[in-house]
């Protein structure tokens, strides 16, 4: 077998194995819960890929997961583990909500949308750059600093929203101007009506292609990957390691910030405190399952989005914890299989 084919197979085996094992464990758990596995899995599929609304919701939920998957994957390629996507999501979404609600109401849609997207990206990038810089400048471990920055982002957002920006009796900011809002796909496709899936979905292939190009085809990407393979070797060959690490974390943070585009501009029309609900942490799972390969993030995000939306559909049949366990099983097996093949690559 050619090494290329073997590595591709290896890459597919991990997710397939993860899924099969998750199904098997899910089967047992469903039986323990006193429900019928075929009925539950049937309802899971029917509620997701079985109707227009379900498909639309899966796409809606996959969109932020691709962004947070990128937020983890890009730094990962530079040898950094970004656990801070959750906080970067909050920073980006709050920026989109704040800027969007302070634009003049007459702002043309193109200007308003672009301004908000840039605000979301920049705020996430700033929040991500901080642990990157701390790593490069002082050697502070980015896992620790980015985790801590999650709490700081959430606490700051809560304070700013609760004390300054919130509308009375709510936990959300004022509505963004109409021009900054994205169109829901349901307004073109009747089958998607009711779902929050919106044109932010179209950003996904653009951003993924851009990241793949940056990583594989540019000098910056080459530097980034060389730091990932070994910071000392890269430094010895003249790569500005600290700057590259900061850049990788900033790019990742910016991607996480883009979740705000989907949620604030595409769905709610405002920033709501506590909306992110772990989507940043799920990004770690998505990136691990996709082995930090930009294009593989899309199927990985679709898988987790299906489980998330499907979890709602079967919620009435079995305790929701079962779906949480399924997600965790997929993640553990994917991580283990990933580590195994990474070791093999090192050995080869």
């Amino acid at each position: 077998m050619s090494p290329k084919l073997a590595s591709l197979l290896d890459r597919l085996i991990a997710p397939a194995l993860a899924l099969a094992l998750a199904m098997a464990i899910g089967h047992v758990l469903i039986l323990v819960a006193g429900a019928s596995p075929p009925e539950v899995f049937g309802a899971l599929l029917a509620g997701t890929w079985g109707n227009g609304y379900g498909i639309a919701q899966v796409l809606f939920k996959a969109t932020p997961l691709v962004f947070t998957g990128l937020a983890v994957a890009i730094p990962y390629r530079a040898g950094l583990f970004n656990i801070g996507a959750e906080g970067q999501v909050v920073a980006g979404a709050l920026a989109a909500g704040f800027v969007g609600s302070h634009l003049p109401t007459a702002a043309p849609a193109l200007v308003a949308v672009t301004t908000c997207v840039i605000a979301a990206f920049m705020a996430g990038a700033l929040w991500g750059a901080l642990p990157g810089w701390l790593r490069g400048r002082f050697g502070a471990h980015e896992v620790i600093t980015s985790i801590m920055l999650n709490f700081i982002a959430m606490a700051l957002a809560n304070w700013v929203v609760a004390d300054f920006l919130a509308q009375p009796q709510t936990l959300h900011t004022a509505a963004i101007v109409d021009g900054a809002r994205l169109t829901r796909l349901g307004s073109w496709l009747p089958a998607f009506r009711g779902s929050a899936v919106n044109t932010a979905l179209f950003l996904v292939p653009v951003v993924v292609a851009g990241t793949a190009w940056l990583l594989n085809r540019t000098a910056t990407g080459h530097q980034l990957r060389s730091v990932g393979l070994g910071a000392r070797v890269a430094e010895a060959s003249g790569v500005p390691v600290a700057r590259v690490q900061t850049l990788a974390m900033a790019l990742g943070g910016g991607m996480a910030g883009m979740v705000g585009v989907n949620f604030v501009q595409g769905y709610k029309g405002y920033f709501e405190d506590g909306f992110s609900g772990g989507v940043g942490f799920m990004g770690i799972a998505v990136a691990m399952l996709a082995r930090a390969e930009p294009w593989l993030l899309i199927p990985a995000a679709l898988l987790f989005a299906t489980l998330s939306q499907g979890g709602l559909a079967i919620n009435a049949l079995v305790p929701k914890e079962i779906v949480d366990v399924l997600v965790a099983v997929v993640l553990v097996v994917a991580a283990a299989a990933g580590a195994r093949s990474a070791r093999r690559e090192e050995g080869s």
Binding site: K61, S308, Q309, L312, K320
Partner: peptide, 14 residues
């Protein structure tokens, strides 16, 4: 019947 969603964006969906 009751539903307990796993994340905030699911409230409306449920």
């Amino acid at each position: 019947e009751y539903i307990e969603p796993g994340e905030g964006a699911d409230r409306e969906s449920a």
